Amino acid sequence: MTGKLAVVFGGSGFLGRNVVRELARRGWRVRVAVRRPHLAQFLRPMGAVGQIQLKQCNVRHKGSVAEALRGADAVVNLVGLLYQSGKQRFDSVQAAGAANIAQLTADAGIENLVQVSAIGADAQSESLYAKSKADAEQAVLASVPTATIIRPSIIFGVEDEFFNRFATMASYTPALPLIGGGKTKFQPVYVDDVADAICEALVRKDAAGRIYEIGGPRTYTFRELMELMISETMQKRFLVPVPFPIASLMGLFGEIAGALPFVEPPLTRDQVELLKQDNVVSAEAGVGTLADLGIEPQTVESILPSYMVRYRRYGQFAEKAA
């Protein structure tokens, strides 16, 4: 693939940096389109000199998107939000932003586009996050019918927003909440496996126009994931079931706190809504999986210990109880 240019929108985030590194390893030239290039300089050393370039871009502004796409052979859209804040809204960033990228990709004559969505994307969902993801998929395929849609379950890895968040919470509180009783099911997928899937989708002709739902090799309940995390961090914490109505109230207070400058809400009502549905790979006919892309997923048990040890009170050499 040496010489071909892939433009990655949102390449400085948790998934993005892994995608950029994998693209560079496979020989692509990579242009990373981000809102604040000065905060993404750490990406440059992931490739050879000059292989990775940074470009200022706001997906809500078509002019900057068109400029970022100049000369591209392939496009990857990773832009997404965990929660809404200020002008960063689900509909304007995840839905309209994706529509802008797809429309201008089509205008540039580029047919190779990967749109990263999420399991649970549903135009009829009560969750604004899930609805905007579905709206984005529809807009992308309307403009670029050959686009590939990747829907991952929750993504884990060294810098993830899932295990790290709850491990940090467990560092200063004696209990962790089990939203909805902790019965929601997940199929966590390793970030490197997701990056591999995206890179494979760019080069496989049979991936054009397809939807892939990708998850790890095992399904867990929310409670099981918390128990696994606690075991690895050696933090003895109570797991307290929290009914959805009470969790929604907690989410409201989280949103109020998140309205303050530089405060990230620990929980939002929209996130509570998402937890009402299982987040696992479906058996829907025609929907691809990691296996269809030739990827054997890593297990949570094989990766989690490598970065949960930093939360142990006595460090990485502390011995777990038998």
Results as ranks from 00 to 15, higher is better:
residue 1 M to E: 13
residue 5 L to V: 15
residue 18 N to T: 08
residue 19 V to D: 02
residue 21 R to Y: 00
residue 28 W to E: 03
residue 29 R to H: 14
residue 33 A to D: 11
residue 35 R to W: 08
residue 40 A to Q: 00
residue 43 L to Y: 01
residue 47 G to R: 06
residue 54 L to W: 07
residue 56 Q to N: 07
residue 58 N to L: 13
residue 58 N to A: 13
residue 60 R to D: 09
residue 65 V to W: 10
residue 74 A to K: 08
residue 77 N to L: 11
residue 77 N to E: 09
residue 79 V to G: 10
residue 79 V to M: 09
residue 80 G to Y: 03
residue 80 G to E: 09
residue 85 S to K: 14
residue 90 F to A: 01
residue 91 D to Q: 08
residue 92 S to T: 15
residue 92 S to P: 05
residue 93 V to P: 09
residue 100 N to I: 01
residue 101 I to L: 05
residue 107 D to H: 03
residue 114 V to Q: 03
residue 115 Q to K: 07
residue 117 S to T: 02
residue 121 A to N: 02
residue 122 D to C: 05
residue 123 A to Y: 11
residue 124 Q to T: 13
residue 124 Q to N: 13
residue 127 S to W: 05
residue 130 A to V: 02
residue 132 S to Q: 00
residue 132 S to C: 04
residue 133 K to C: 08
residue 136 A to G: 13
residue 139 A to V: 09
residue 139 A to K: 02
residue 139 A to P: 08
residue 145 P to Y: 00
residue 147 A to R: 09
residue 149 I to M: 12
residue 156 F to S: 07
residue 157 G to P: 09
residue 157 G to F: 02
residue 163 F to E: 02
residue 171 S to T: 11
residue 173 T to A: 13
residue 175 A to L: 08
residue 177 P to D: 12
residue 180 G to F: 15
residue 180 G to H: 14
residue 183 K to P: 01
residue 183 K to H: 12
residue 188 P to L: 07
residue 189 V to P: 05
residue 190 Y to W: 11
residue 191 V to K: 12
residue 192 D to I: 03
residue 202 L to M: 05
residue 205 K to P: 00
residue 207 A to W: 02
residue 210 R to K: 14
residue 211 I to C: 12
residue 213 E to M: 01
residue 216 G to A: 06
residue 217 P to E: 07
residue 219 T to F: 02
residue 220 Y to N: 01
residue 221 T to P: 04
residue 222 F to G: 03
residue 227 E to V: 04
residue 230 I to W: 00
residue 232 E to R: 12
residue 234 M to Q: 10
residue 235 Q to H: 15
residue 235 Q to M: 15
residue 235 Q to D: 11
residue 243 P to I: 10
residue 243 P to G: 10
residue 247 A to F: 07
residue 247 A to N: 11
residue 250 M to V: 03
residue 250 M to S: 03
residue 253 F to P: 01
residue 254 G to R: 02
residue 261 P to L: 08
residue 261 P to E: 10
residue 261 P to A: 12
residue 266 P to I: 03
residue 273 E to R: 13
residue 277 Q to D: 06
residue 278 D to G: 07
residue 279 N to R: 12
residue 280 V to E: 05
residue 288 G to M: 09
residue 291 A to G: 07
residue 294 G to R: 15
residue 294 G to M: 12
residue 295 I to E: 12
residue 296 E to L: 15
residue 300 V to H: 03
residue 302 S to I: 11
residue 306 S to H: 14
residue 307 Y to T: 00
residue 314 Y to H: 15
residue 314 Y to R: 12
residue 318 A to M: 15
residue 321 A to D: 08
